[in-house]
């Protein structure tokens, strides 16, 4: 047959509890970390966002590798997961290429005409 595993691999018990514990610890860490404002300490913009994302990615890889058995399965399943995430990254990054660089040639082109939504210009909302 093509690419089939022969035996079903049974992960030992302690790995499950270790991974479970690690996830809970990491959750506590990410909540704790969120109170510290990294941007002012290291001066790198959106540092907090990067830290939160790194911790979330570690947790996600732990779940994927051990709970979803990617560690003991054929590499093709990991490839499918990564291709899905890569496709999502492409969507996010290239869309931000547009929304983030709009005002680059004409600053007027970047600013919305009504920064606050019309919902908040109370005087003419009623009779629109």
């Amino acid at each position: 047959m093509s690419e089939n595993q022969h035996t079903t691999h049974i992960t030992p018990l302690w790995i499950y509890f270790a991974v479970g514990g690690a996830l809970l610890v990491l959750t506590a860490v990410t909540v704790g970390v969120s109170f510290i404002d990294f941007t002012s300490i290291f001066g790198v913009s959106s540092m907090n966002f990067a830290v939160a994302m790194i911790i979330a990615t570690i947790k996600a890889t732990l779940v994927a590798l051990f709970f979803m058995h990617l560690y003991s399965d054929s590499k093709f399943y990991s490839l499918t997961l990564l291709s899905g995430i890569a496709c999502l990254m492409i969507f996010i990054v290239i869309t931000l290429l547009d929304t983030n660089f709009r005002g680059k040639i004409y600053e007027i082109e970047g600013q919305p005409i009504e920064p606050a939504a019309k919902i908040y210009q109370s005087e003419n909302v009623s009779d629109q």
């Binding site: 709009r102 040639i105 004409y106 007027i108 082109e109 600013q111 919305p112 005409i113 009504e114």
Partner: peptide
Amino acid sequence: IKMDALPNRYTV
């Protein structure tokens, strides 16, 4: 020349 007219923004 062609440029869309958007309700929330000026385009040039």
